[in-house]
Simulated scan of single mutants.
Amino acid sequence: MRDTDFPVTSSILFLRRPQVTAIAVVTAFVGVTAFLVANELHMQQVPDSFEAISLNLDFVRWTLIAGTVAVAELWYCYRHLGANHPPASAGDDTDTEATHTADADISSADKTAKIESYQFLGLPNIVTLARGALFATLAGFAGVTPIYSIAWLPSLLYGIGSALDFVDGSLARTAGRQTVLGAKLDLTFDSLGFLIAPIVAILWGQLPVWYLLLPAAQYSFKIGRNHRRRRGLCVQPLPASSVRRPLAGLQMAFITLALAPIIGANLIEILAMAVLAPSLITFIRDYLVIADYI
């Protein structure tokens, strides 16, 4: 399929390889954040004290965790590069209204037709990959001891990644470049962000451990639905909802706030209960709907 997102010139022929573009995007974001972390941890200095050695070890742990998540994201992207094409039909719903609703439609779009893939990865997918790279760099902070000089970085990384969630979809619709790959990446990175960010916040003492009920409910929903499909049990489509997308946005905003060192732990715990409860209720209700219990 001729891709019209970019002019075909000799200077950008490398962009015809989506793998190269994906590596470049993820490496760039991880590399820039690594430079910021190294600079704040004073990695340019020769360790001459226990504190300096500890900072060096923090950077090693950050690199290992962030690098592992980034490689996993690239592997997932490579695995699904064949889905870099429009949905099989106009009726296929690849809307990412909620992080647990569109997987069935994406899978059916892959299976119902063989459509020629785009030559280029495309700007919307690049933005989505940038989100994934930001979440990978955020994951690295799970291995870092909280210090004042980097206290704002996790909140900034997750906040920017969450904001881009509203950009990639708009770009895809505006440019007429909605793809099955983009929907897959968007759903996966949404789920990954909802897992990584709370873990970092908990390890940094900024969220209670029980807030992990959010990613637990999300992944339990997906596992339960897939289990029903494998057993040939009834799996009803979810009806449209006016609350899923706002609730997801609310969670993103709250987690960004919780990662920022500006609110005390007691107030955050109260807010966490208020924010978490409606999301858990929604996941339970949605599972009962797809299982045809209600």
Rank of each mutant, 00 (worst) to 15 (best):
S10Y: 10
L15K: 06
P18F: 09
T21P: 00
I23V: 15
G31F: 10
V32S: 05
H42P: 01
Q44Y: 15
Q45G: 09
P47C: 12
D48F: 13
F50H: 13
F59C: 07
F59R: 02
W62M: 02
I65F: 06
A70P: 02
A70M: 03
L74E: 02
L74D: 00
Y78V: 02
Y78W: 15
H80F: 14
A83C: 12
N84G: 06
P87R: 10
S89D: 12
T99R: 00
A102I: 07
D103G: 13
D103T: 12
K114F: 00
Y118G: 01
Q119L: 13
F120D: 03
G122S: 12
P124E: 13
N125Q: 08
G132S: 07
A133Q: 11
L134Q: 09
L138V: 05
W152L: 11
L156R: 10
Y158N: 05
I160L: 15
I160S: 09
I160V: 15
L164E: 14
L181Y: 08
L185I: 12
L187M: 14
I202E: 08
A217G: 15
A217I: 06
Q218H: 07
Q218C: 09
F221Q: 07
G224T: 08
R228P: 05
L233I: 03
C234F: 04
P239K: 01
A240N: 11
R245S: 12
F254W: 13
I255W: 00
I263Q: 01
V275T: 11
V275W: 01
L276E: 06
I281S: 11
Y287M: 13
V289E: 07
Y293L: 14
Y293M: 12
